[in-house]
Structure formats: structure tokens, C-alpha cells
Amino acid sequence: MADSVRTQGLFKRFGEQVAVGGVDLVVPKGSFTGLVGPNGAGKTTTLSMITGLLRPDGGVIQIDGVDVWQDPVVVKANIGVLPEGLRLFERLSGRELLSYNGQLRGIPKAEVDRRAEELLKVMDLVEAADKLVVDYSTGMRKKIGLAAALLHNPAVLFLDEPFEGVDPVSANTLVEVLRRYTASGSTVVFSSHVMDLVERLCDWVSVMNRGRIVAQGPLAEVRGERGLNQAFLDLVGVRNGGGEGDGLSWLGAAQA
């Protein structure tokens, strides 16, 4: 299986703090990849650098064999991005946002409109299509963001925390769309803390901790016999807290 995304020694520091310290990420083509890790592990920084939004301090990034920072025209035409924090054009309506995205990429207006209409329907956003994005709920924003990322039919999709703060109905819609997308041979890379979801959706997992990849491979291999959640906790080295004798003795129903 060829690699869709491959990074070597990816490195980024902010001041004193090393956010990403030599990441060698591998994502096979056509895989549904989960990038998991605790807060501050460097997931967002890594995804930002791979998608060309943040300049790395060192390392190489290739998408389908093309270097992201050397040949951006080819790479940018082939990737779709949903960054963290729902940063969208707040004062456009959902429909206008899709239209803007498509036209910016040079897709003919009629084709943009056709695709936008279908995406709005699939994402269940037809009723809200003419409302401003600033008035959207979190779930709606994630859906319109995903629609915008899919509009130009990219080969690889990068999603930063696509399910964070999303209600179960919207999450289900997102999952259905993504499943259909990978079934056709396209690649999805998404970051998440929700292990159940990663376990359910992904066939490939990369675990990050403190700016490094600590485990990477097919889901079954990484999780072993333990289940992904336990495997993850073992990998990032969490002590078993929250038990007795750690304080909090007053918490719970009254004993007096």
C-alpha cells in the first residue's frame, strides 16, 4: 500500500517550548486514520504544518509523494482541510461559504452550485443554508466546514477534532459522509480524543504524546488485546489516579 502522507523529522518550536519534536507520521493511501493524543501532544501543530498553514522549523512533508512546501500548487489542489476552532467566514451564509470556496478554487460557478446543493442536503443544512455562519451551532459549523473541505473532491482530507462538541445526530451525518468518502479510496486523517469513535471508524492509528509519535500502525496492532482506550493510557503513561486515598473524601452522598 502506497503512503498518502509521510513526514520525516517534522519539528516546530514556539519560543522555548518544543511543540512537535521530530514527527515521522505515516498514513497509508485509502486509510481512515485517527491521530490521537492528550491535549498539548502536538496534534494540531502537526496537522497545521502538513496542510501548509504553519511553517515547520524542520523536517519534510510529502502528500502523495509531493513535498508540501516545495510544490504547494499540486498539493493544495488535492487536500481538503477542516482546522481546529471552527474558524470560518462568520458573515457569509452557509451557501455563500461553499460558493466562495468553490470559486476560489476555480471550479465553474454552475458546478459549484450543484455540488453545494448536494452537500447541503447530505449535511442536513438546507434549512440553515441562508443563515449567517455566525449564528450556526457547533454541529452545524463542523458540518459546513466539512462540506467546504469536500467541495473540490480532494484526495486527502485533514480534520482537526471534527467531532468535538458535535451532537450525536450531526456526528452520525459526519461519519456517514466520511465513510462513503474513504470507501471510494480517498484518505482521511482526523485528530480526536474520543477513543471509542477512533476505534469504531479507523483502520490506522497514530498515537502522539509530547510532540512525538509513540505508536503507529493498523488499529488491531496498536490496540492489541487491551482495547484502544487502555492501550492509549498505557502509551502516554498515565498513573492510575482518582482512586481512594487521594483526597476528595468528602465527595459523594452524605455519610453523617
Binding site: T51, P72, K76, V81, R87, L88, Y100, N101, L104, R105
Partner: peptide, 15 residues
């Protein structure tokens, strides 16, 4: 005025 949404342009422009 684009502010935080400017990434949408950044992921498109290759030159």
C-alpha cells in the same frame, strides 16, 4: 476582516 478565516484562502493559494 477575514481574520481567523483567512486559512480558507491559505489552503487554496499555491503561488
Amino acid at each position: 476582516l477575514d481574520g481567523r478565516a483567512l486559512w480558507m484562502n491559505a489552503v487554496v493559494y499555491g503561488s
